[in-house]
Amino acid sequence: MPSETPQAEVGPTGCPHRSGPHSAKGSLEKGSPEDKEAKEPLWIRPDAPSRCTWQLGRPASESPHHHTAPAKSPKILPDILKKIGDTPMVRINKIGKKFGLKCELLAKCEFFNAGGSVKDRISLRMIEDAERDGTLKPGDTIIEPTSGNTGIGLALAAAVRGYRCIIVMPEKMSSEKVDVLRALGAEIVRTPTNARFDSPESHVGVAWRLKNEIPNSHILDQYRNASNPLAHYDTTADEILQQCDGKLDMLVASVGTGGTITGIARKLKEKCPGCRIIGVDPEGSILAEPEELNQTEQTTYEVEGIGYDFIPTVLDRTVVDKWFKSNDEEAFTFARMLIAQEGLLCGGSAGSTVAVAVKAAQELQEGQRCVVILPDSVRNYMTKFLSDRWMLQKGFLKEEDLTEKKPWWWHLRVQELGLSAPLTVLPTITCGHTIEILREKGFDQAPVVDEAGVILGMVTLGNMLSSLLAGKVQPSDQVGKVIYKQFKQIRLTDTLGRLSHILEMDHFALVV
């Protein structure tokens, strides 16, 4: 994948999101292997301009796509893939009243899908469409860049269908997702969380590099694949309309690839034109409109599966009536509230959605109805927002919020430890010299600072030695090549209790 991002070429006709291997024109390309080798690009942008032909009021008969309808489940399912879809609609009884809503608040519980998330729908649909058009064949390999849930859905379907599955996901995604993927037989590649989507090191860039190296491999490409919004247009939206008897006044959905909100909203605009569509985008993402909503100094966020630093091709923002931004604290607070007060075992993005819903639905009156999409299960986040310690460490809970008995030293300040200034190293000294210094002084790690004293990161003896043994660096290389740029900081005025929580999850903390 090139470091400079080429513009994806656009073909003359058809839909841009065809499933299957992508040609340089962004659509299915038939021909000899030699032709494909000559024409197939190194990668295709996940934010390529959409060429979708959908228009409100256009006859369904003019759609270029294969459409399906929700099917009634048999008493005995032939395999677990038949437990994807037909998820329950559940009334939220307490939270709406707590925040003064007059309307009825309903939750579409997508964590009841077989793999635990709304992404099971698009995973199965992308595979079925690729099999139907002859792209996927027995023994082929599926590769997908994902925040985890699409990966789980694909790995689940691949396990049943017999495909090899490789999932490329950023490091910030939970260990629970990784464990589930491994249990399903998927191979996992992790990428830096802070890598831009168009960087060769991003999950998108690495996935395309693997595709170019592995024979008979395919990126189904949830960011561009029409099967993504079509899955929701054909099934999720129809289920909502049936469950609500066609009567709903507002739908609120958090947005990642945009397939969920695009597919549902398009069908609702056709069948229930008075329904307002509300999009939820986390602070630090750029999906919301108008652009002024996205202006923030924050560039990272903890909530998973929603928000991006690019506009995915499948996201149709014209069908969203209003956007709201959400933050991590309210997302996790509301997710825990949904679990504790409503018994809905949902993930953090569901918290984002409901946090926005109780604001947006203030305009609705008694007798009206708001539906929220709860995308995934708490299963993926047992060591994250479900953990009091994690919430404390991230600053989303305060010590006084917890009532468990603490040891005698818990409320003492870090400054009472009488710490001395640490050994520091410059980023320009060599790895070999740094190892000598650390061994001589008896230290395992040291902060790396520039000549102005600005902290650049941390270097550890173990990481340097393993990097040297693996051949990633040489003793003569500058130590700046092996620094940890993500590390926890703590102030002298913070409590030892807070430091204790940090050290339970990290090997060190830097006192500043």
Rank of each mutant, 00 (worst) to 15 (best):
L248W: 02
A253W: 02
K75G: 14
T150V: 05
F112R: 02
T150L: 04
L124W: 13
T87W: 02
G259T: 02
V189W: 09
T5N: 15
G96T: 02
E176P: 02
K39I: 06
A183I: 02
F111G: 06
N113E: 02
F197C: 02
L248P: 15
H203Y: 08
P215D: 09
L230H: 13
I44T: 09
H66Q: 15
L251C: 07
E131N: 13
I142Q: 04
A155C: 10
F112Q: 08
E270V: 11
I95K: 02
E128W: 08
P2R: 15
A157F: 02
L230A: 02
R132D: 15
P59S: 12
R276C: 09
K267I: 10
V160H: 04
A157I: 07
L268S: 06
G31F: 11
A157M: 09
C272Y: 10
G26S: 15
I264T: 09
I142K: 02
A207T: 08
A48S: 04
D234F: 07
Y233V: 02
M89R: 02
T193C: 07
G258A: 02
A38F: 15
G134I: 02
Y163W: 04
P74N: 02
T260G: 07
A107Y: 04
V160C: 15
V168W: 05
I80H: 02
E213F: 08
V255P: 05
S123M: 02
G205V: 07
G96V: 02
R121C: 04
T262H: 06
A265G: 09
R209N: 10
A69I: 02
A24W: 02
E131V: 10
G100L: 07
K119F: 06
A253C: 06
I219P: 02
S50M: 02
H22K: 02
L77A: 04
T135F: 09
L156P: 10
K137G: 08
T87Y: 02
L248C: 09
P74M: 14
R266P: 02
A253T: 13
R45T: 07
S217D: 02
E270T: 02
K36D: 02
P16I: 15
K102L: 08
R91W: 04
A237V: 13
K39C: 06
A231H: 13
G148M: 14
G31S: 10
N93V: 02
L220F: 05
I142Y: 02
S27T: 13
E62C: 13
D79C: 08
L81S: 09
K82T: 02
L124F: 13
L248I: 10
H66R: 09
I92Q: 02
Q243Y: 14
A183T: 09
K36C: 13
M173V: 06
P6V: 04
S174V: 04
R161L: 02
S174M: 02
I152C: 04
G246N: 07
P2M: 15
I219F: 05
F99W: 12
I166R: 11
P33E: 14
M173P: 02
D133I: 02
D221Q: 02
D179K: 02
A265D: 02
S175V: 10
N149M: 06
R125L: 05
S174I: 02
H67Y: 02
S50L: 06
K119L: 02
E171H: 10
N93Y: 06
K211V: 15
T236H: 02
E40L: 12
Q55E: 10
R18K: 13
I127R: 05
I214C: 05
L81R: 08
S227A: 10
P192G: 02
S23W: 13
T135P: 04
G259N: 07
D79T: 12
